[in-house]
Amino acid sequence: MASVSMTVNGKAVSGEVEGRTLLVEFLREGLELTGTHVGCDTSQCGACVVHVNGESVKACSVLAVAVDGADIRTIEGMAAPDGTLSVLQQAFQDHHGLQCGFCTPGMVMSAADLLQKNADPSEQEVREWLEGNICRCTGYHNIVKAILAAAATLRGEKIAAE
């Protein structure tokens, strides 16, 4: 067993983990942050995407010990402390960008990273960015719309109502 300490959603946390414990296991089992999901075992589906030091990372492909000391953000840390949804989360609701909700945390975390890297992505750029996030419910249509709408809002633009 090894001790790990990290900051998760702004709070200092620590725990004892096995060398083989994955970050996603530490988050879900150790910290009971069950918003981060596991949808595959080959690092393809992206349901487990979190931010490690500001970058989107698949938490199923990182050992907990490898991110000792890191700053982690999960879906539970995306809304304001009073519960107000972030612009991106709100856009997912407004544009019906989720159905069963299982891929949603990974989609939101992945898209948030896209928008901090590219404030004005094209539809094609959004689709290509989501290569590592699989959704089985939405056909991606409304996910793409939500991300484009959130980008516009964050740029201060108003999208004409449909």
């Binding site: 069950t34 918003g35 879906i75 539970e76 949804l85 989360q89 997912f92 019906h96 909700g101 939101v108």
Partner: peptide
């Protein structure tokens, strides 16, 4: 109507079977 279930899914508060211990 916007979906009421979305808020829990968008904030990591959904409770799927594997989230139960």
């Amino acid at each position: 109507s916007k979906r009421r279930e979305d808020v829990r899914f968008l904030t990591g508060k959904g409770q799927y079977t594997d989230d139960i211990n």
